[in-house]
Design a protein around this nucleic acid. Structure first.
Lengths: 140, 140
DNA sequence: GTCAAAACAATTGACATCAAAGGATTAGGT
DNA sequence: ACCTAATCCTTTGATGTCAATTGTTTTGAC
């Protein structure tokens, strides 16, 4: 059985992303965090509408998974959930001071990691890569 | 809070890979498979040494996870495990006829998916992308 | 105004994954 | 020959994820 004429792009992408994700998660763990926690923190800080539905979409996970993480983060004192008085179906999520501190700590780790990841790539190459990734996403 | 000066490359890569992976897994599910099963099948067919340690490395999962999938695949009749008589620590993994059939079925799906994923990208762009992915992986 | 439908979040049940610990077998040093 | 090390696989316990279901609250049709 010969190797496929064209190497499998999807598998290459998946393998690379897995390595990168794993390394990033390890780096965040060293600062007392994790990838999902970091994604949730930045989405909250960016001031997305504040309901969990939009938050989940911004993070790229389902509502069920978000609930799971928010439970843990609330138990850890990183945030509080309050019902919106004007629409009691909605939970408003807000960071506590401990949540703010964790955010700043993880931001340092994330910034350093992204710098490491970009090492040796020119600004033009980064633009090309971003464009290619966008086009792949549009193809699925 | 302003957006970061340079967009977070790691998150873009992770998001794209997640979309692609999800779409690929859905396509394989339509053919009665899944991404891990497909990866295991191609690794076996490629004739890797035949022990589970190397098989897990080829697939990109740990031995524990591989054991889990092999249990399920063996229960489904896709493969058999036999102890190597010359080294009874080693399990040799072999596809059954049903396993071969599943492999061929999924190969059609995977080929079609990769074609869809590459749509609109020139051969040169694919080369550039493969090179960039390789360099990212080297940076972690 | 009432009541069915929609929106929102939480819960439940399932799967993929990993790290750490455990059991069986072989290899190597003495 | 022994007996400690290493090797190989499995088991156990934990996390992250999703789909489907459930419970609350609001909206909209009548």
């Amino acid at each position: 059985m010969p190797a496929p004429k064209t190497p499998p792009l999807g598998l290459h992408l998946a393998a690379t992303a897995k390595s990168v994700r794993r390394a990033f998660d390890d780096a965040l763990a060293g600062a007392g965090g994790s990838l999902p926690v970091w994604l949730i923190l930045i989405s909250i800080k960016r001031g997305d509408p504040g309901n969990q539905r939009d938050l989940a979409a911004a993070v790229g996970i389902t509502g069920a998974t978000l609930t799971h993480h928010l439970n843990a983060m609330e138990a850890d004192g990183l945030l509080v959930r309050r019902r919106d008085p004007s629409n009691r179906r909605i939970q408003r999520v807000e960071l506590t001071e401990a949540g703010e501190n964790t955010f700043h700590r993880l931001r340092g780790t994330a910034t350093a990691f992204d710098k490491r990841l970009r090492a040796g790539l020119t600004a033009q190459e980064l633009d090309v890569l971003a464009d290619l990734l966008k086009r792949l996403q549009a193809n699925v």
